[in-house]
Design a protein around this nucleic acid. Structure first.
Length: 773
DNA sequence: GGGCACCGAGCCT
DNA sequence: GAGGCTCGG
């Protein structure tokens, strides 16, 4: 029998913020005349008026849907305004929307842990902020409640009454309410304030859901749109799920949802309550079964990841029907375009966020005109990513060729360039992934990586600070940064009156943690870096945020106390939960110990080394092995505002004279100043030794048996991207210019025998079959 | 003459 | 770990 936890402080307060028809809003901000008009954003108007990718709420009233073509929309709504998506390099360019999303994220992230879920959606963990507010300034103590908060929808609250706002006010201020409901009320006030702030600073409206977990928050945010917020009190969860069609639940909108409906004959999420966990596991596997069992009860342990930046960048285009590409030359042309965009975004990410991507992947879709197994898919291919547009283009083309050969398999290939080569490419995309932050304190490497041509933003004047701030989270093309004009005037939020000005002592806390971390004898890296950058004022400010593990939410589900059990009636806390609790603590401990391991020289990514001038490589090699083997960094770089400001400032100060990224090439080695060489050296070892892991929340450290955390959270995955020097494929060396070859061979010695046919760390491995073409 | 465009995340093997 | 597949928007 589960034992109720003594306090209910486990409850989390999670908000899901969803921008209203976001692309339309972005276009309407550009063209204010469009405001209030039925509007849709389309791409490619050449055929049937283009495909709609966003529809304003005014247009939706006419029945305009996202799935329509422009012409259809015109039919149902003749006065609709159709706006084209920006086009660059012959394809849709979504940078302006990405950047606008970054503006919003940078505002929302002020109040709590923030996860950018998509271009226009954000999750916020407001637990700490809500707890603090409840302790210091509970709603019941306020003489006035913000108007926007009063417009909240509280599920289960009868909205039919005369004075809805009054009943919301009463609900928000109930002094005798369940602790978790009080926290929800605080969360709602905070979210209302945040939404107004977003509107004032960006002119964008958004909707929000406030609940005890991500799943419920996401459901709620969609319930009242646009520009409204919805609260999910504990007591209404069962009712909500009981009437929620299976397919409406996130993750159940596709095939899984369909098969659940047909296999089990159920219609709503609540209907799943009748099946045992074992039964669900039997039908859908251990993980999915448990996940289903949980969601039927409103339990979702998914954490809000502290992640403001995307994990990958991609650029792709389809070539439907007759537009299909049939020659290597045309493929190369489009690959070059796509790689150009990717390169731009990578540079932007490097500049603004100091992150480096390590893997380049090529995807394609193809069909063979006359072949038996025409259903065969074009295989995606990846290789280590080398910076520099020409290299990206070259590698992408090589990946394509490798994929094409595999795709065509044994069937004979006609000569390339021939119109009738037998294959057609209907989609192409390149993407960059395994993106990690360059350790802090290495910003002057930026000079090295930073071409004068790199970015218009490097030309920005200091007074453009606010613009940069807004764009700081963006990882998009540099040209679009210019579009981020700060809003000159602060807009009045509709219905805005008095406002609570309640700020979490966020920065103070972060500062405290930082100090604590520093005092704990961290980082030799710090000492090291001070040594190597005596003039730097950055080593202090640029410290990465220590992992945020001070508060581990030990209970992610609902109904974990006896109080709530009685409140919700029949639903009982499964006893396994308590077991899982203990187990996860144990796992946490052991994984905490593991975190101290650091990285070894063996983990150096040789592809990065390849990019450095040989002498530097040599130095790095010698130096890293003797000195920095076990330095560690906290895994997550929080993009706390102060920190990124500091970085930006330093960057802005430094970025005017630079080396082109494409010049990282042995021939220019002589041009490197000693200072730069030192930086490169420092950077390399730090980067290579301590490439940070993706954030691992404490919850993510819990094992798969912890049902609260086993659902879809990518738990306990520990990704590293490493190469071992002794696994270098010797054939790589053949590719190097003679003088470099000698160097490399020197530092590779003693050389192990070649592992023939074995994968090596070099890009050469991926392409070797093409060598003798 | 014809079409879900483009992008990102996560799970599974 | 690369690559296939699913899902959401």
């Amino acid at each position: 029998m589960p034992v109720a936890k003594p306090e209910s402080s486990d409850a989390r307060i999670i908000a899901h913020i969803d921008m209203d028809c976001f692309y339309v809003q972005v276009e309407q901000r550009k063209q204010p005349d469009l405001r209030g008009l039925p509007t849709a954003v389309v791409q490619y108007n050449s055929w049937k008026g283009g495909g709609l990718i966003a529809v304003s709420y005014e247009a939706r009233k006419f029945g305009v849907k996202r799935s329509m073509r422009g012409d259809e929309a015109k039919q149902v709504c003749p006065q609709i305004q159709l706006v084209q998506v920006p086009v660059a390099r012959g394809k849709a360019d979504l940078n302006v929307y990405r950047n606008a999303g970054s503006e919003v994220v940078s505002i929302l992230a002020r109040k709590g842990r923030c996860e950018r879920a998509s271009i226009d959606e954000v999750y916020l963990d407001l637990t700490d902020a809500a707890e603090a507010m409840l302790a210091e300034m509970p709603p019941e103590s306020l003489e006035a409640i913000d108007e926007e908060a009063l417009k909240s929808h509280v599920l289960g609250l009868n909205e039919g009454g005369n004075d809805i706002k009054e009943s919301v006010r009463v609900w928000l201020c109930r002094s005798q309410a369940d602790h978790r409901d009080k926290l929800l009320a605080c969360g709602a006030l905070i979210v209302a304030e945040l939404r107004m702030q977003v509107f004032r600073e960006t002119e964008f409206t958004c909707s929000a859901g406030i609940a005890h977990n991500k799943m419920l928050a996401k459901l709620a945010s969609a319930m009242n749109k646009p520009a409204q917020q919805t609260i999910v009190p504990l007591s209404c969860v069962r009712g909500l799920l009981g009437s929620l069609p299976i397919k409406k639940m996130k993750q159940l909108g596709g095939k899984l949802g369909s098969s659940i409906q047909s296999d089990l004959g159920v219609n709503t999420v609540g209907d799943l309550l009748q099946f045992s966990e074992e039964k669900l596991q039997e039908c859908y596997g251990i993980n999915t079964g448990t996940w289903l069992w949980n969601i039927a009860r409103g339990i979702s342990g998914e954490e809000v990841e502290g992640r403001l930046l995307s994990k990958s960048h991609g650029s792709g285009k389809t070539f439907p029907g007759p537009k299909a590409l049939k020659t290597i030359a045309s493929v190369e042309h489009w690959l070059n375009e796509l790689c150009e965009e990717l390169d731009e975004r990578l540079r932007s990410d490097l500049e603004q966020n100091k992150r480096i991507a390590h893997t380049l992947t090529l995807h394609a879709r193809a069909y063979k005109s006359n072949d038996s197994d025409s259903h065969k898919k074009f295989p995606s291919k990846s290789c280590p990513l080398r910076y520099g547009i020409a290299k990206i283009q070259e590698d992408a083309l090589n990946l394509f060729q490798a994929g094409l050969r595999e795709y065509l398999g044994s069937c004979k290939v006609k000569t390339q360039g021939n119109q009738c080569s037998g294959w057609s490419i209907t989609a192409l995309s390149v993407s960059a992934s395994k993106i990690v932050a360059i350790p802090t304190g290495t910003r002057s490497i930026m000079k090295y990586f930073h071409g004068q041509d790199l970015s218009s933003s490097s030309l920005k004047q200091p007074q453009d600070r606010s613009t940069e701030e807004a764009a700081s989270l963006s990882h998009s093309g540099s040209e679009s940064c210019l579009g981020l004009n700060p809003r000159e005037t602060q807009k009045q939020f509709p219905g805005e009156e008095t406002r609570i000005n309640y700020d979490m002592p966020n920065l103070d806390q972060q500062e405290k943690k930082r100090k604590m971390w520093e005092d704990q004898g961290t980082p030799s890296i710090l000492r090291f870096f001070k040594r190597h950058n005596p003039t730097s004022s950055l080593s202090e400010q640029e410290q990465v945020e220590p992992i945020q593990d001070t508060k581990v939410s030990s209970s992610s589900g609902l109904w974990t106390t006896s109080e709530s059990c009685s409140e919700t009636g029949q639903i009982q806390l499964p006893k396994e939960m308590m077991v899982a609790e203990t187990e996860s603590n144990a796992r946490r401990d052991s994984s905490a110990a593991k975190r101290n391991d650091g990285y070894k020289i063996d983990d150096i990514d040789c592809s990065v080394m390849d990019e450095l001038p040989p002498e530097i490589q040599e130095e790095v090699q010698a130096w890293s092995s003797e000195e920095l083997n076990q330095v560690q960094l906290p895994k997550e770089m929080m993009v706390a505002e102060t920190e990124s400001n500091a970085r930006r400032d330093s960057l802005a100060a430094k970025r005017n004279d630079g080396y082109k990224i494409d010049d990282i090439d042995c021939s220019v080695m002589d041009e490197l100043s000693p200072e730069i060489q030192e930086e490169v050296q420092a950077w390399s070892s730090e980067e290579l030794n301590q490439v940070q892991l993706p954030k691992e929340t404490m919850a993510a450290e819990t094992g798969p048996n912890d049902r609260r955390c086993s659902l879809g959270g990518g738990a306990d995955r520990r990704e590293t991207w490493s190469y071992k020097i002794d696994e270098i494929d010797p054939s790589v060396i053949d590719e190097l210019p003679p003088e470099i070859r000698a160097e490399v061979q020197a530092w590779l010695r003693p050389q192990k025998p070649a592992k023939t046919g074995k994968r090596g760390s070099s890009i050469a491995h991926y392409f070797s079959p093409m060598k003798n073409k």
